[in-house]
Design a protein around this nucleic acid. Structure first.
Lengths: 228, 228
DNA sequence: TGGGATTTGTTCGTATGTATT
DNA sequence: GAATACATACGAACAAATCCC
C-alpha cells in the first residue's frame, strides 16, 4: 500500500525539487549509491529516476562517469526561454476569455501567496512563480501543454540558477496580476504579447549576466527533500 | 569496443524507429522480456530504454501492466502539432538568411531523396519528411531546438499513425522546396508563415477526421444511444 | 606507470501486482 | 471467488570502467 509503484516518481520528484529550488546546484555530482542510501531505495530506482531527469534536461550523464546536475550554457539558456515563451503564448491565447470565476479566483489566490513570499523566502518564491505558469497550462485542460510547460519551467529554473544572481529571478507579482486581468478581458493577442514581454524581461535580467559559480557538499542537503 | 555505452540508446533508437515507421502501431504491447530477447539484451536495458521513450511521449506505462505504444487522443494530437508549429517557427526565423551554400545544397539534396521516395515507399517517405524538419533544427546549431524538434517530430509521426489515413501524411515535397527558397531569400516572417501553413495543412489533413475510437467515458457514449 | 578504491553498467532472482480461467 | 499464468518492480551481486594516489 505504502509502496505502490511510484517510488521512482517520488525519487524523481524529490531530485527535481532539490534542483529547482537550488538545494543542489548545477554541476553537482549525483552518485547513485549516495542518493539511494539517503532515500532508502536501491540503485535501480535511483537510476530510473535519473534517466527520467536526463530526458527532461535537468541532469546530464557522462559515460561511466555518473550523473551531474545539468549546466546549461548561455545559448542553451536562451533557447530554452525562447521555446518556453512560444508555448506560453499558446497557453495564453487559448485561455483568453475562457476562464470561469472559480478559476480566476484560484489564480488570484495563488498570486497572493506569491506576494506573501516575495522578498522573504526566495526559494519558496521561485517555486510559486513557476507554479503560476504551470497552473495556467493546466487550466487549458491540455495534458500535452501541461507536460511541456512543467518541463520548460523546470529547465528555466535551472537556467536561472546558473545565470541569475539572487533576487533577480523573481517573476514580478504585479505582472502576474496584469496577465490575469488580460485573460479575463479576453484579448488573446494582447495577453500573449504581455506574456512574451513578461518572460522576455525575466530572461533578459538573467541572461545579460555572465554565469556564476557555486559549489557545496551534497550529502546532507538531500534529506531536506526526502519526504516532501 | 563494439559495446561502448550506448546499449540503452541503441534499444531506444530501434524502438523509436519501429514506432515512427509504424512497424509497431499504437497500443501494441511492449513486454520487456520479448524485446530484450529480440535484441539480445536483458530486461534492465530494455526498461531503461522504455522509460526514455515514456518521457518522450512515445510509450505509455500502466502500473504493473507493462508498456504499450502510446495512443494519443485527438486533443493530444492537435496540441502536439500546435507546439511543434511554434518551435518550427522559431527555427525558421533563426535560419532565414543565414544558410551557407553548402547547407542549402544539403537541404536540396535531401528533398531530392524525398521526391525519389514519394509515392513509392510510404514508410521511407515518412521518415525522410521528418528528417527534413529535424535537419532544419540542426542547422540552427542549437542543441535545445534540435532535441525539441526531434521529439516533436517523433510524436507527430505517432499522431499521424493514429489519425491519418494512408497517403495523407506526406509532407509535400514542393512545399519543402518553397521553404528552402524562402529561407534563402531571407524573409523570416514569410518563411515562418509558410512553415505554419505547411504544418497546419499536414495536421488538418490528418485531424479533420473524427477519432477512430470514441474516447469519452463509457457512460457518456451510452447516453447517445439511450433515447435515440 | 600501475594498483587500489570507487562508481557505474548489467545480469538475474524474487516478490508483488494484474488479468484470466 | 480462487487459483493460475504472466509481467513488472525492486534489490543484491557481479563485471567493467574510471579516478586517485
Amino acid at each position: 500500500m505504502s509502496d505502490e509503484n511510484g517510488s521512482t516518481q517520488q525519487i524523481a520528484d524529490a531530485l527535481r525539487r532539490a534542483i529547482i529550488e537550488q538545494g543542489i546546484g548545477p554541476g553537482t555530482r549525483l552518485p547513485e549509491d549516495t542518493i539511494g542510501e539517503r532515500f532508502g531505495v536501491s540503485r535501480t530506482v535511483v537510476r530510473s529516476a535519473l534517466t527520467e531527469l536526463v530526458a527532461e534536461g535537468l541532469v546530464e550523464r557522462r559515460r561511466n562517469r555518473g550523473a551531474i546536475v545539468a549546466e546549461p550554457s548561455w545559448n542553451e539558456a536562451r533557447d530554452t526561454f525562447d521555446v518556453r515563451i512560444a508555448v506560453e503564448e499558446i497557453v495564453v491565447k487559448r485561455l483568453a476569455g475562457t476562464l470561469t470565476e472559480d478559476q480566476v479566483a484560484e489564480l488570484r489566490a495563488h498570486v497572493s501567496r506569491e506576494e506573501k513570499a516575495a522578498n522573504k523566502d526566495e526559494v519558496h518564491s521561485i517555486r510559486l512563480a513557476g507554479e503560476f505558469h504551470t497552473m495556467l497550462a493546466q487550466l487549458t485542460g491540455s495534458e500535452v501543454l501541461t507536460k511541456h510547460m512543467r518541463e520548460l519551467v523546470s529547465r528555466c529554473c535551472l537556467v536561472l540558477a546558473v545565470f541569475a544572481r539572487p533576487h533577480s529571478s523573481e517573476c514580478g507579482v504585479s505582472e502576474h496580476r496584469a496577465l490575469i486581468d488580460l485573460l479575463v478581458a479576453g484579448d488573446g493577442e494582447r495577453a500573449a504579447a504581455a506574456m512574451h514581454n513578461h518572460l522576455g524581461d525575466v530572461a533578459e535580467r538573467a541572461l545579460i549576466l555572465p554565469p556564476k559559480r557555486d559549489e557545496r557538499p551534497i550529502g546532507d542537503i538531500l534529506s531536506d527533500y526526502a519526504s516532501g
